[in-house]
Nucleic acid binder design. Structure first.
Lengths: 156, 156
DNA sequence: GCCATATTGACAACTAGTTTACAAGATGCC
DNA sequence: GGCATCTTGTAAACTAGTTGTCAATATGGC
């Protein structure tokens, strides 16, 4: 709405701008979606990282899998710890660095929101053809790879 | 890297996650790209909104075109004012609400970064077919429309 | 085993954005 | 013209993330 660009943007630039807009939209939508579960988009994402981990992980390990800094991951972990959705365990391999996993309550909560999300996702999926989804996924992934910072680039 | 999801995500969920990742990547990349111009991604975006406006606009008007709150837009305007990239003018139609436009220095700066971006964009564009770009753009736009919040939804 | 180097936790300051609140100005309706 | 309502500027508190710093702890080469 109100986006009549003065010069016609090239398609690549248009996609980048749409990524920014879609990101903002999905975060706002996600905050609403997660609110009845007493979650925000950020805490939901951390729950997902914990739920998807094959074993309890340290804060820096979780940060890497989520693509954020260890300090950022730690903040969300501390919030979830305080709400007892996550438990902190001694790390047998590292005295200073505890490992984290979902608590029983955290598992229940994540399953509930995950189930509701899956219902939504399967509705959304029907809006698109498989080819469209595959192409969009490829383009997004390629754009990300093409914009890795020098220090992130070793096995792109 | 290290993204072997335990359960195979459906393609729709995968796209949403890729949008988050691509967004973060483009913001980091954009901060690097804009740094030699003494800009950040956020101030660059505001320069773009000012450059694209048909006339000087008030802070709330700029906020609407950028999809942020008026307070958020005001913060970036204040920073750009302080660096004299933007000028504040009296609004003939509204005594309390000044209007903003690029200063001469701001125009020069924006042209410089815009030119360098266009060079980059035309390189990137060659990585994809026109069909891929069109499809990706369509999917992103449709995802955004499908996730408008109730109060944003009147003429989707 | 020692020591240089890398990781980690804790904390502070910062960017970018949001929500909430309030007072001052505009606007529209009657 | 007066008055209720909306818009705007300004400020503070908050979310979510970043960078930078420091001391403590691991780790690896020798």
């Amino acid at each position: 709405m109100s986006d009549s660009p003065p010069e016609p943007y090239d398609q690549f630039t248009a996609i980048i701008l749409q990524i920014f807009r879609a990101n903002g939209q999905m975060l706002s939508w996600g905050d609403r979606f997660a609110a009845p579960f007493n979650l925000t988009s950020a805490r939901w994402q951390m729950l997902g990282a914990l739920a998807g981990a094959p074993r309890a992980l340290s804060a820096p390990q979780l940060a890497v899998t989520m693509g954020v800094t260890r300090q950022g991951a730690q903040k969300q972990l501390d919030l979830l710890l305080h709400e007892e959705m996550v438990e902190k365990l001694a790390n047998p391999y590292h005295k200073r660095s505890p490992i984290y996993r979902l608590s029983a309550a955290g598992k229940v909560l994540y399953q509930r929101i995950e189930q509701e999300w899956n219902q939504h996702a399967s509705q959304m999926r029907q809006t698109f053809s498989a080819e469209e989804l595959t192409t969009a996924l490829h383009v997004l992934n390629r754009i990300r790879e093409l914009h890795l910072l020098p220090e992130e680039r070793d096995a792109p």
